[in-house]
Amino acid sequence: MAQDPIAIKGIRQGLLITLGEGPWDALMEALERRLEKGAAFFRGGRAALDVGPRPLDEAQIRQTRDLLARYGVDLWAVRGTAEATIVATVRAGLSPLLAPEGATGGAVPSEQEETPPVPAGGLVVERTVRSGQRIEHPGDVIVIGDVHAGAEIVAGRHVIVWGKLHGVVHAGALGDESAVVCALDLAPTQLRIADHIARSPEERRRRPVPEMARVRHGRIEAVPWPHR
């Protein structure tokens, strides 16, 4: 399979979708496939588009915005180096910059923040996550407490639970197969990493040991954690 021309990652302002090389129609198709796969995760989010030097016209921007809107994603910015792209972006009523207007300055100026891969920071949850509660974050999610059955954790990257993990968990929800799930008692109702899905064994262990789930050879496997 050719390398995916679409890269999606989490930044502080939401998702950043980077379009790579290739004909426009193929890119749109590839983007739609990615959106379909992660539909539940993307819904309700906002995204910025990075097109690099490729010049985009207003119709293409509108097309992308409509495509994202169908999956419940709000396109708010388009970043490109071509002048045509910037003009078209402004005409389409979107921001040509990734820093939101009036943003209170974080530790890093936004221009630097966007250089190489910027993983969204970790989200630390210091409580019991109960049935019906859903934690969603484009970066790592760390839970200090238990995740009960009926709860959901969805993370763009790793999920670490310092406690029991009995709910549904999805790590690498943006397609990152290198994401892992660690828990002191790893017994999720269902465990997903990127687009792999696994269930826990039916019978519960009498004495749980900390485990880490990861993708190896196209399957999810659990190994003792720390791994020796």
Partner: peptide, 9 residues
């Protein structure tokens, strides 16, 4: 399970 949901709320 329902009790857990309500406790969370």
């Amino acid at each position: 399970r329902d009790a857990d949901r309500v406790i969370g709320l």
